[in-house]
Amino acid sequence: MLSDLLRRLTAPAPEPLPDTDARVAIGALLVRLARSDGDYAASEIAQIDRSLMHRYDLNASEAADLRAECEALEAEAPDTVRFTRAIKDAVSYENRLAVMETLWAVALADGTRDDEEDSMMRMTASLLGVTDQDSHRARLKVAAG
Rank of each mutant, 00 (worst) to 15 (best):
T80N: 12
K88Q: 15
E62L: 09
V81N: 10
A107M: 11
D49Q: 12
A98Y: 02
G111R: 09
A13L: 11
L73Y: 04
L5D: 03
S119L: 11
A143V: 02
M1L: 10
R50E: 09
A143K: 14
A75G: 15
G129V: 10
R122S: 12
T10N: 13
M100V: 11
A60N: 13
E15G: 06
A63N: 02
L103S: 03
D65I: 00
I48F: 08
T124N: 05
A109G: 06
R8W: 02
E94F: 10
D114T: 08
A105G: 14
A125N: 07
T10G: 07
L30E: 05
R8D: 13
A98H: 04
Y56D: 08
E76Y: 07
H54W: 11
A125M: 08
T20M: 00
D134C: 08
L97Q: 08
L140V: 14
C70A: 15
P12A: 06
I48D: 04
P78W: 10
S135H: 09
A63F: 01
P78T: 12
R122K: 14
A11W: 06
L108R: 05
T80E: 08
R96Q: 07
E44H: 07
D114G: 15
A46E: 15
K88T: 11
D79T: 12
V106T: 03
M123S: 14
E101H: 04
S119I: 00
A143L: 13
L58T: 03
I87Q: 03
D19M: 09
A42D: 12
V142Y: 04
D110K: 06
A13W: 11
I87R: 01
G111N: 09
G38N: 01
V130K: 09
V130C: 10
E74A: 15
S3N: 11
W104T: 01
L2I: 14
T84V: 08
K88A: 15
L30D: 02
V130I: 15
E69G: 04
L66K: 03
L52Q: 11
H136R: 14
K141F: 10
R137V: 14
E62M: 11
P14C: 07
S3W: 07
D19Y: 08
A22K: 12
V99F: 09
D132T: 13
D21F: 00
